[in-house]
Design a protein around this nucleic acid. Structure first.
Lengths: 369, 369
DNA sequence: CTGAAAGCGCTTACAG
DNA sequence: CTGAAAGCGCTTACAG
């Protein structure tokens, strides 16, 4: 059997050194472009490297330098356009500085998130960007931070430590949306989110562990309370993940005390709610007003186009990446917790609240008085 | 200065061995769970590891084992729902087998793609899944394959080698869409794609380097030719990336010989075309029929809902990942080039071709009999 | 079952 | 500028 069969093994510096007839150290210097090498020697080494199809082993390099030029990212759901856009921004900034991104999906599950972070840490990523599924259960975040590697929270804050975070003013955003609806005469304003929340009516915001959602609920309920609405959290629904957005929407819009407006916590929820409203034969905004968090392009071409809360998603991701890079470089960061503003984009899915007359609803009338 | 300051350095097997008073080899065996260890020793080692917050260095492990438990993925654009969905599938399958995904965006740029592949190869990924931006310029793909690591092409084929690929029957899909339009009386059927193609009318399919697009063009033009349409490629437009979908759409729908139907090569193109058509004051499908490749949920809630070519995207990604894993395990694979079927989902954006009367078009009439 | 040694492919001091 | 040696943190044979 001839030995020039298949070159299964990758060429190494040693191979190059041998082929170029120089010491390993010299070959390594020429290849890695560090330390002094004579032009002649460099040429010989590079030629040999090219000849043998040399590819440096980044793993070996990382072991020595202690840096992997990699940023680990953990998001809730890559398929949510919000995260897709943010990840794109992170990738752009990272690769602009010679870093690669390892992406992981937590599915908004705490255990998956913990595992993902462990794996990324084991791979010795230089920094971690994570959208934590819980702002309460943060021992894994603290552990990650304890390794000394930079950790930046994306879109969500967390308790139990001094974490860098890049977020949006969710409370203000929700307050604005709510105020807009109040202006139009709405008081029965629903908020739908797809947390992995126990089925049932929302009781106190103390149980809401995702910071974005907690902030938005606060924005809604505070604004309603200030306007004199008796039970501001009456139409807050957080169990859309378990029950399905469709069912939650249907319930909200059926019965005696039905909601006249819905705020959807992301574009996916808005889409599902929109479909359900249509299927119920209700009109937007005549029967129900609808506001969506996030502003994907399709919200402009529905009938009617959607009123949305636009978030600076790309900036959010880009800033998280920049923060991470600065931390990696050991710089003490000033703006450790930037908070971006949102914009309420008024389109046609919001309108005056329907007059509170009992119209053609097929349910039995059970009003005492 | 006290030395119990900050434990900057990560704990290593050596540290654990020292703390547990055993040999490095024994500690390594207990930690790595390979080789024989007595229960007592294992307990002592594990306790020490826990105490010192030991995290195995996956880099070091990879150097020895030659496997990184990582799959490198290169897509054209993470923000395209097509790729987001496919990547999700890849992640699901990969993490189900203990693999992580390193994601890279090529922006459909050949140089970025080459660079991305180089970096991933240097990081010693165990396999590569790439959606090649060109099926002609494939030297980097051949080089990647020459390293011996599995390479699976996603969504697109490539010349110049025996590449595994997971694709869809694009020719058939386009043919079906075209036939449907022909049935409705359309003959001036446009196809719009956002390649980085030189501005100008499409001439011969030989210049189209992306296999999916080339296949779709073939599907359209062959079907038109078979139906007796004189110049089947007359309304093929591949320069939407440079000129913008809006401008291309406007041109197609203006003038004497205007298109009566448009096939959009992905949901992003469809969205832009839809907007433009509306802005022009044209009705869908009365004035123009529209078919989109891909079936994101929003296509159901536009007015009218879109007729789409649905691709089994998740299956595509999942199968690519499965193929990669099988290749990693050294199994010779049977179905090296699975081709999935698509489905034409009829909704309301396609209808009878408008009667060929000269209506209220504001341009000068320059027909010489 | 346990330990000492060599090696993975690089980089980092340190002498010539 | 050049080379020999040690080391990064593990795993892999190989003797006890």
């Amino acid at each position: 059997v001839p030995k020039d069969d298949a070159p299964k093994r990758d060429a190494t510096v040693a191979d190059i050194a041998r082929a170029a007839n120089v010491s390993k150290a010299a070959a390594a210097r020429a290849l890695g472009d560090y330390g002094p090498v004579s032009a002649a020697m460099r040429d010989r080494v590079l030629a040999a490297a090219h000849e043998l199809n040399y590819r440096p082993n980044a793993l070996a390099k990382s072991m020595n330098t202690g840096r992997s030029n990699t940023i680990g990212v953990v998001v809730g759901d890559i398929e949510n356009p919000f995260f897709a856009h943010a990840v794109r921004a992170i990738s752009d900034v990272a690769s602009g500085s010679g870093y690669e991104v390892i992406l992981t999906n937590s599915g908004e599950d705490l255990l998956s998130e913990q595992h993902a972070i462990d794996v990324l840490l084991d791979k010795r990523v230089d920094a971690l960007i994570v959208a934590p599924s819980s702002s309460v259960n943060t021992s894994h975040l603290q552990a990650a931070q304890a390794t000394g590697r930079p950790l930046i929270l994306l879109d969500r804050r967390a308790d139990g430590g001094e974490f860098d975070s890049v977020t949006v003013d969710n409370r203000g955003a929700a307050a604005n949306a709510t105020a807009h609806l109040l202006d139009q005469g709405h008081t029965r304003i629903a908020f739908i989110s797809t947390l992995d929340h126990p089925v049932g009516t929302f009781s106190s915001s103390g149980t809401v562990t995702m910071s974005t959602v907690a902030d938005r609920i606060r924005g809604v309920t505070e604004t309603l309370a200030k306007a004199g609405v008796a039970d501001p959290a009456e139409f807050v629904r957080l169990d859309a993940n378990r029950r399905g957005v469709a069912e939650v929407t249907r319930d909200l819009l059926t019965g005696d005390r039905r909601a006249t407006a819905i705020i959807a916590s992301d574009s996916l929820v808005a889409l599902a709610a929109f479909k359900t409203i249509r299927r119920m034969g209700l009109r937007i905004p005549d029967d129900v007003s609808l506001i969506a968090f996030d502003n994907p392009e399709w919200t402009e071409i529905t009938t009617p186009p959607l009123t949305v809360v636009e978030q600076p998603i790309y900036e959010l991701g880009a800033e998280a990446a920049r923060l991470a890079l600065r931390r990696i470089d050991g710089n003490d960061v000033d703006g450790r917790m930037p908070v971006f503003d949102t914009a309420l984009v008024l389109r046609e899915s919001t309108g005056p609240a329907p007059r509170p007359v009992a119209h053609d609803t097929p349910e039995r009338s059970t009003r005492s008085t």
